[in-house]
Every structure is written in C-alpha cells, then in structure tokens.
Simulated scan of single mutants.
Amino acid sequence: MLKVMVACGCGMGSSQMLKMKAAEVFKELGIEVTIHHTSVDEAMSTANEYDVVIVSETLVRNFSKAKATVIGLKNILSKKEMKEKLQEAHVGE
C-alpha cells in the first residue's frame, strides 16, 4: 500500500479537495493507498515518510530534497491531469 500526502498552502480546503480527487484517481488505477492531507510547511518536513507527494506545480520546488515521488499539478481538481502524471511517473508499478 502506497503512502500518499497531498498538500496546499494552508492544509485546509484545497488539500481536502485534492485528497478526494486523489482517492478517486488511485481507485480508478487500482492502487491501494492511504492519503494524508496537510499544509505545505508540514509536508516539507515529513515528505520522506511518504511514497508520493501531490501538490500544485507552484509548490514542487519546495520538495527538491524529498525522496518521495513529487507530482505537481497545474489544476489540482483535474482527475485527468493527476492520472496522467501518476502514470508518467510509474506510480504503483
């Protein structure tokens, strides 16, 4: 089971919506996950505890030292974009 973290600036509304979209996408891909949502500040300090980190493209640079696979999205509500980027990164294979 993959450990996934989704993050936004404050860790409130946007990350919760991102978590719901991610859950749908991973289910469609047939990948079992646990998903945690949080603020980017917390995410930066705990990223190495996760397999995948999903954030807005503007936040990707904050994870340059993370061992996790970092997925940056232009549109955090686009299931299509998330699915494509997860597949391109070979997440779950």
Rank of each mutant, 00 (worst) to 15 (best):
M1R: 09
M1G: 13
L2I: 09
L2K: 03
K3A: 08
K3H: 08
M5V: 10
V6D: 00
G9T: 12
G9P: 08
G9E: 12
C10Q: 12
G11Y: 03
M12C: 15
G13S: 15
G13Q: 15
M17S: 13
L18T: 09
K19N: 11
M20Q: 14
K21Y: 10
A23C: 12
A23V: 12
E24L: 08
V25F: 05
V25H: 00
V25D: 01
F26T: 04
F26A: 08
F26M: 06
K27R: 13
E28A: 13
L29Y: 04
L29P: 05
G30P: 03
G30D: 10
G30I: 04
I31H: 02
I31K: 04
I31Q: 05
I31W: 06
E32L: 07
V33W: 09
V33G: 05
V33I: 15
T34M: 10
I35D: 07
I35E: 07
H36E: 15
H36A: 12
H36L: 14
T38L: 07
V40C: 10
V40Y: 03
E42D: 13
E42V: 11
A43W: 02
S45I: 03
S45K: 09
S45P: 00
T46P: 01
T46Q: 07
A47K: 02
N48K: 05
N48A: 09
N48S: 11
E49V: 05
E49D: 15
Y50T: 01
Y50V: 00
Y50L: 06
D51R: 02
V52T: 05
I54F: 02
V55F: 04
V55T: 07
E57P: 00
T58F: 09
T58M: 12
V60W: 00
V60E: 05
R61H: 15
N62A: 11
N62W: 04
F63A: 01
F63W: 04
S64P: 03
S64N: 10
K65I: 05
A66P: 05
K67E: 11
T69M: 06
I71C: 07
G72I: 04
G72N: 07
L73W: 01
K74I: 13
N75I: 14
I76K: 03
I76P: 00
L77M: 11
L77C: 06
L77S: 11
S78A: 10
S78W: 07
S78Q: 09
S78M: 07
K80E: 15
K80L: 12
K80N: 11
M82S: 00
M82V: 04
K83A: 07
K83F: 08
K83L: 10
K85P: 00
K85S: 02
K85C: 00
Q87W: 03
Q87C: 04
Q87Y: 04
Q87V: 14
A89G: 02
A89S: 09
A89L: 01
A89Q: 03
H90P: 01
H90V: 05
E93K: 14
E93T: 08
